[in-house]
Design a binder for these strands. Structure first.
Lengths: 249, 249
DNA sequence: AATTTTTCCGCAAAAACTTGCATAATTACG
DNA sequence: CGTAATTATGCAAGTTTTTGCGGAAAAATT
């Protein structure tokens, strides 16, 4: 059996039952546990699953709540937020959507920054409200508890009449050909409106989100101005974006 | 069973019934109590639950942070919130503004209540987002950092087109002749619009607020339907309200 | 105060993982 | 086609993680 077949089989099983065990795969695929471990490691490096002691679990485990997502890859998110924070300039009008990475950025806005921020994210707004130099404007609408953001027509209407300097998107998936994509249609709509309403587009993406894609397109790759991520511009994961002229930070 | 599965199961159970016991989990998941204890500790370290003697509870229920302990008359506010919570009925469309008393009420919405809540308060919206039966709609606008509420034209416009069943106001001052009054002009405007948009008006007021008045009038005394407070209807502080036909709870 | 329940601590066994290495399979190329 | 290079696999030894247990400590209950 070819390695690729095994990988496909593992991912298939993972989709069906959310988890796989090293021992179980070793038996069904008739290879040693060591080989399975190496398979899982490779797939984990591609962000296709999450390796745990005893096997692996699906990264896109659906019943994840906001709180649970917040602790996932937390250290990496903080590093990205720190890198992004130094790129902000006073006087800007900024659009920010939700996401746990954006929340870390909101917490790390430079103390002396003066800016106006429009956001549809409750946690981001809460974090920014403690900042002395930032005027925060919350987009109204129905609250999605899973993502802690508001959606709906009111927010879209407000964005339609706005010309902001910078949009900071927390994306679920960033792909060099497909662009920034989302899994929820209502969220995707608001994000699209945010992108439309601003000059520049910055995205913070942890490694696991690079090269991934979801059903609803938020922005095409060429819309992206800055991509803040962990791998450098030479890294195969980031290089395709650099080739498009996107600033890799 | 993988450790992560157990964790997911624990969190799932916690989300549904907001508490779990060590013994119960040990039985359902078929591992020793020590293992459960270690699981709970790990999850507690990630901030995903709160460990208590005998098991764990949802963090949503116990946000007794250092800040909240210092809230003025906190215990009294909690008692008022408990009294008000039992008066809520399923199917209602409710308007809620901010304030620490309203926040305590939001945390104590009956678990089986089904309702739609419009609010301009960030903490109230955050608390309600954890409630399975409540649809939360946030009023947009500029964020006042001191009160953690939004103000502005967008919220006023939305309220103008609304007919709600109940308005729950957290008032700064309640006077039997002057009515409910506020100290901030912008907040007063939103509150006034909320009162206008609903059939009934309920207010939770700690003793210290009774008989007080502030510059901006939000609602006349006769608008008030229910006053939830500590003194009984015979008490000289509450009697003038009872005389107006207001329900004292 | 006594008793029961729950938690904490250290330990030991089992399971799972890592690493280095030898061998087998596959691919590359003259 | 044959041989070298590369890659994949399995094995063994050592390490880490996980788990359950006994007993002491702490907390709740009576």
């Amino acid at each position: 059996m070819l390695k690729e077949e095994r990988h496909a089989s593992i991912l298939g099983q993972l989709r069906q039952q959310q988890k796989v065990t090293t021992l179980g795969l070793s038996r069904t695929l008739d290879v040693s546990e060591d080989t399975i471990r190496r398979d899982l490691q490779e797939l984990a490096e591609l962000g296709l699953l999450k390796k745990v002691h005893g096997g692996a679990i699906s990264t896109a485990l659906s019943p994840y709540t906001w709180k649970e997502r917040e602790v996932y890859a937390h250290e990496e998110k903080i590093r990205l937020a720190e890198k992004a924070a130094v790129r902000l300039r006073s006087g800007q009008v900024i659009l920010m959507d939700g996401g746990t990475t954006n929340l870390e950025l909101a917490r790390r806005f430079p103390q002396d920054l003066k800016a106006t921020v429009f956001t549809n994210s409750l946690p981001v707004a809460t974090a920014l409200s403690e900042h002395p130099g930032v005027e925060t404007i919350l987009l109204g609408g129905r609250l999605l508890s899973s993502a802690q953001v508001t959606v709906g027509k009111d927010g879209l209407d407000l964005l339609a009449g706005l010309r902001a300097d910078l949009c900071i998107l927390g994306a679920r998936a960033v792909h060099p050909q497909i662009g920034i994509t989302e899994i929820d249609w209502e969220e995707a709509q608001i994000k699209r409106a945010m992108v439309q309403a601003s000059q520049e587009l910055m995205t913070l993406a942890i490694t696991a989100k690079l090269g991934m894609a979801q059903p609803y397109i938020v922005a095409e790759p060429r819309k992206l101005t800055t991509l803040v991520t962990t791998p450098g511009r030479r890294d195969p994961l980031a290089a395709p974006f650099a080739a498009l002229g996107i600033d890799i930070g």
